[in-house]
Design a protein around this nucleic acid. Structure first.
Lengths: 210, 210
DNA sequence: ATCATATTGTGAAATAAATCACGACGTATC
DNA sequence: GATACGTCGTGATTTATTTCACAATATGAT
């Protein structure tokens, strides 16, 4: 579990930096300054320098950062060499979108199993991911410790309880339900309706600039 | 544009509160304490009280909050009576998921138009939303000031530029690209790969509790 | 009525994160 | 190699958000 002095806000930005560094590397760019990176990822350059500095002195004054070096560093830091296997629960429209989404491109995470109640889907695969029946969740979860939850809201808690009994340690919850879990389990909520509604709220109530 | 002393963090939670209050109301519950609500939405009760207090004294000591009153109050505050029309750009898997998603249920936002390049989709509708060709974006955007962007990353900036020229004021960007916009335009990024990757990072690097 | 209990609303404190601003130092040029 | 320039790394500051903790007060039971 190692050193944990990195602020959460920084940790959330790391995957973003990683992806953009990958892009730069593919473009053949050898160096990048915090200012350039700032324009690409839309994060203040001082924030980027501060973020990087938690990992030590990665850049050179007057030069910037060596793209390849930084990339190699982040690959290790983000455990890019070790693939995390993920299960997807609920193959509806949103779930299907994930199955088609190629997370692996710049990424260390891979959806390896999907589950649904619809008999017509069970036994098939989408985007190369086999679909099992939810009743057989436990038998087929082997080695998977992270789940993406894209089931109807009213089933969210029931499935969550089973995932936790099974031993999952992280859940990415796309349902509008706020699930209850033991404190050892980490849950990230992404609530699409709330995101849209809060954007609309900001537009109506906050000054147009800034 | 009115009073804007509400912290952004609070504003982001308002739609969430609203939805849960709606649920409670449907369940016939007449009163709710910050503690109960806290358990439901997973937000600290002191934070909830503080959030509500920005709008004045909405509760009663020793009693809690009257569900119906609070709901009515938020309906006005969140402009629930006035529907915001939204366009969806890019009818791929993720876009399709949105079209099937019934935002209107507890919500003042409605996807009224969709756009795609695929001729086979153009002219049809999904979830009651008509699909137009992206070439006819400008002709069909009438009255729409918010767009959900679910196109391939490499098209994100081009479409964004057109949306802005047209006069859109808010964009919910689901592409991995960080789009560049004038400062008057509000963009919310939701980066699915980053969300998954940062969950995995937290699991590996942060203490299991807290 | 009285009293025990519940729960708000909020000052004050704590925590977290972003930003400023600049000295130090490496690079590039002549 | 001296000089001008660019960019990092970071101490200090500012801003934002959460949390503590408790006086004030309404409720509900007897």
């Amino acid at each position: 579990m190692e050193q944990n002095q990195i602020p959460q806000a920084t940790a959330k930005r790391l995957p973003l930096y990683y992806r953009f560094l990958n892009n730069l590397n593919h473009q053949g760019k050898k160096r990048v300054s915090s200012k350039e990176l700032s324009e690409a990822v839309k994060v203040d350059s001082a924030t980027i320098r501060r973020d990087f500095s938690y990992f030590g002195a990665l850049g050179k004054k007057g030069y910037g950062y060596n793209v390849e070096y930084l990339l190699g560093f982040f690959r290790k830091t983000l455990d890019q060499d070790e693939v995390t296997e993920v299960a997807l629960i609920g193959v509806g429209n949103l779930g299907t979108a994930f199955l088609h989404y190629n997370f692996m491109k710049n990424n260390n995470t891979k959806i390896v199993k999907a589950f649904d109640t619809n008999i017509e889907k069970v036994g098939t695969d989408i985007g190369g991911v086999p679909i099992f029946h939810i009743e057989e969740l436990e038998e087929n979860m082997k080695g998977v410790s992270v789940a993406i939850l894209t089931v109807p809201a009213n089933e969210a808690q029931t499935i969550t309880d089973r995932l936790i009994d099974y031993g999952v340690s992280g859940i990415l919850n796309f349902t509008p339900a706020r699930i209850t879990v033991p404190e050892k389990i980490r849950v990230h909520h992404i609530d699409l309706a709330v995101e849209l509604q809060s954007l609309v709220y900001f537009l109506k109530h906050y000054p147009l600039d800034l």
